[in-house]
Amino acid sequence: MKYKKGITQQNVIVKCGADKFLPFALIFGLYIILFGTVSPGGGFQGGVIVASSALLLYLGYGYKTASKAISSEALRVGESVGATLYVILGLGGIFVGSVFCRNIFYNIGPVGDLISGGTITFMSYAVGFKVLCGVGFLLLLLMGILAPDTDNEKEAKE
């Protein structure tokens, strides 16, 4: 892949748009994860929305800044942590004496409240965290492929 000179320089309008929309994308995605059990939405969808904000960062500032701002190592670890949390929360049902993924400690609030779902709520959070990290890592990977090779060569020379 070869780009013309100057095409890697970011457009001011795109940069300003990314600045404006990044916090909204993050807040919207985190809201969908938080209220996944009492509203339309859920862990998967909210996680994907949060991860897509990495793409906004890439559009505004390029691959170098995005890869510096987001630690791919932390994302890789976070995905495994989310999956493990889900399995541990699911195994809670077996330790109580019922089946896998049974909803335990569910009488903890009025119906429709944020944590009224009991274990379901925390499982939804675990899945949301896992999808956030996984899709974010995937997007970073794709950005690395899409990024112009001139950046990498410069880094190698330095």
Binding site: G36, T37, V38, S39, G42, F44, E79, G82, A83, Y86, V87, G90, F100, C101, R102, N103, Y106, N107, V111, G112, S116, G117, G118, T119, I120, M123, S124, V127, K130, V131, G134, V135
Partner: peptide, 27 residues
């Protein structure tokens, strides 16, 4: 299941294995 959202309780309680498999497909 004491969950206000039926879909969430189906996805995470009654069909928990399904969600687990989906997340591992993503992995």
């Amino acid at each position: 299941a004491y969950a206000a959202n039926d879909v969430a309780s189906v996805v995470f309680d009654f069909r928990g294995y399904d969600t687990l498999g989906e997340s591992f497909i993503l992995l």
